[in-house]
Structure formats: C-alpha cells, structure tokens
Write a protein that binds this DNA or RNA. Sequence first.
DNA 1: GATAATGTAGTACATATGTTCTATATTATC
DNA 2: GATAATATAGAACATATGTACTACATTATC
Lengths: 213, 213
Amino acid sequence: MSPKSVTREHILAFLRTYKEKNGYAPTLREIAEGCAVKSLSVVQFHLDRLELAGVIKRDKEKSRSITLGTESREYERIPILGTIAAGHPVSVPDADTRSTAGEWIEVPLLITRGKKDVYALHVRGNSMVDALIADGDIVVMQEAQDIRNGDVVACWLREQQEVTLKKIYFERDGVRLQPCNPYMAPIYERAENIEVQGKLMGVIRRYSATFPP
Amino acid sequence: MSPKSVTREHILAFLRTYKEKNGYAPTLREIAEGCAVKSLSVVQFHLDRLELAGVIKRDKEKSRSITLGTESREYERIPILGTIAAGHPVSVPDADTRSTAGEWIEVPLLITRGKKDVYALHVRGNSMVDALIADGDIVVMQEAQDIRNGDVVACWLREQQEVTLKKIYFERDGVRLQPCNPYMAPIYERAENIEVQGKLMGVIRRYSATFPP
DNA sequence: GATAATGTAGTACATATGTTCTATATTATC
DNA sequence: GATAATATAGAACATATGTACTACATTATC
C-alpha cells in the first residue's frame, strides 16, 4: 500500500487545528515544529503537493498566507451577511453564495435555539432606536418563514421605501406593526405594502471601551 | 464633534475587506499602503487602539496575526448575579461568594474581551428604554473601575433613588450623563449625587418565540 | 539488485515584517 | 493662549519568514 504520506496528512491536520485555534495560518517553521519535521524544505515539499492537489492555497512570498479549501463549519457559527439600515432593503445572498461570507460570529444557543437559516447583520445608523436597537449592534435574524403574531420582524415598507423592525400582528383590516419600545404607538399598514424580510432572533451589543464618543 | 478617528475606521474597514478577499490578514505595510498612511508607526498606533478596544486581536511579533473581534470563536461563562431595575441599586456579591451563583450565561469574547470581574444581570422593567435596553435583556457588566469618559455605566442617583444607564462624561462643573439614544438630551448631576456601580460591556437580547399579545 | 520515484535533512540567503525611537503637526481642554 | 492629548511622519533595527540549493535516505517498480 502506498502510505499516502503520513507526514502530509499530519501537516494538513496541523493546518486545520492551528487555524482554528489562532485564526491565522502557521509559518513553515511552526509547521515543521508542530509536525516533528526537521527541515523546512520538507514542509515546502508537502505544501507544494497539497497546493497542487488543490487542498490548500498560498501566495508566493507572503507569510502565513495558507488558506484551506475546506472550511470547517461547526457549532453555532453564523455568517454576518451584510448591513441593515433604514433606507435599504435587506439583501441576503443565496445559500450557495454564503460560503464566501467573510465575517462570522458565534452567537449563544440562547439566541439561535439551533434553528436553521440564521444569519447576522450589522446595524448602521440610528433609525431603529424605536426598536431599542443601536448603531453598531449586531442583529441575529432568521429567514422569513412561518411568521406568527408577535414575532419581531424586519420588514420593508414599499411606499415609504424603508426598513423597520417591529412586532407584527396580522389583523382583519391589515397589519399592525408594534414598536418594541412599549412607550411608542403602533402603526397600521395594508398587507400589500409590507414585505417581511426576516425574523429577529436576537441582538448582540458591545460597548466599545476606549473610543471617544 | 469628535471625528472618532476616520483613519482608524478606515483601517478597520480595510482589515475586513482584505481578510475577506485574501483569507489572511494584511501586514502593517499593506495596511499603510491600503489606507494611504505614510508611516508604519501610525498603523501600529491605531492597531494598538483597536486592540485595546477589543475590536481586533494580534500576537506579538507574529506577522499577519490580526484577527477581528467578530471572528472570535470563544466563549466565556459568566455568572448572572442578579437583577437590575429602576428602583433598586445594583448589589453585587463579593468575588468569593460568586462561585455559588446559580445562574450562568455564555457570552461571546467579543463582548467581554477577556476582561476580569465581568458579570451579567437580568433587566427588569422598561425603565431603561432610553438606553436602548429592553425588559428581559441581559446586560453584561464589569465592576466599576477605571471609568473613562464615554463609558456606558450603571449609576445610582442618590437623591432620585434610582439606577440609570448612561454614557458618562466628567466635566468641570460635574458629571454629564448622556443617554445612548442619540435623540435624547443629556442630564447633568453633581458628582456627589452619583455612584457608579458598574461599566456596561454588552447586551444580549433574545426575542421570545411568539407569545400571543 | 538496479533504477527511479519519493521523502527527509541541512544550510545559506534575501527580504518581508513587526518593533522602537524621536520629531512634528493637529486637535481638544481649561 | 498655554497645556495636554491625540495623530502623523520618518528612519533604524532585529528577526521572522519564505525561497533555493545540495546531499542523503527510504521506498516502489521492474
């Protein structure tokens, strides 16, 4: 049997764990040490083969530039697919385009509850303070399906050309949109004017420490 | 208005797009070139600030080791020490009592930034909507120390006998408390009347699944 | 067993890259 | 306007890091 190079497999495994742990790729010397290989050229050799096989990719003369072809997906890692702002509808890439999303965030199970089709959006601007959502927040959303009374949804108001985050109630004359801020009054819309773009699952806010106001 | 350092924001944006495009982080020189900054030390300077603010993380003397806060895959388990409500001061048990805390929550490192003395509180009531915090939210706090201008703090107003969450600014005649809702006006208090009880680090909100109204 | 294919070691080198220092400009604060 | 805080520039430096080359060992194939 051809051993298929145990060292090569070892290097590949090392790459995965190292990137998982550190968030960036190792150097040739770190690989050599981590895989008990005594020579840099050996690492070069195997990396060349791995690259030829299309398992990894790296850029010439750039340090720590190894990227893995297979991205390990795991746990509660969800993609940050874009930005939500008042004047723009939420546009979410197709499921297949999603793998290329650059930013990810891990959110508590408390929020996602293990649901599928969950993604996150950066919040830009202060147009959603009436939903108690601030500029810079990250909102966790689920794709619009099975919307029920009381769900907090992002909906696009066609006439007004804006996105709003409100509790939704389907009533006999139309739709009631209730702000999350209990001190604010609801608005009423015809069903044709609203387009539900996603269901709100949670909010993650972080107060930046050292930035001036 | 304070510019919030346009260069710093630029660098942060550059980091995001570069990592998204290449799969690994840029070097200091690449950042300098990409952000039209002429000096490496300027890049160093801003990276230090960004790291201090917990937005990025990087490892000493390692090239291309910048990771974005939103990529952090780690969690921290922190105790939920009690409840924060308008009419009651925040009472936090001693550090030694803490191990016996019954409730815990896992929060993203994005929020805690690995700091010590971090704990969580349930929010009860709607008295803090002006801080964009809703009934049922969980706030992540840090014990009151090293409070700086612009920090969001929980403070007990002695005269009024109430807790409020506001951005704090120490000015020459007293203290300015600025609501997080940018559409609301600040209040001014004498320093003797306020007692800072903790620094706000983050908020976790979960929208409960479809309770009827 | 000869020969080629494959894998490993070692070393030298150029440069890519983070660090540190000083000096100067710009902006806030009182 | 004086003083501090913040931001930018420039250069010198140490080393981290990828590359290139030769030599030797191990395994496969006939």
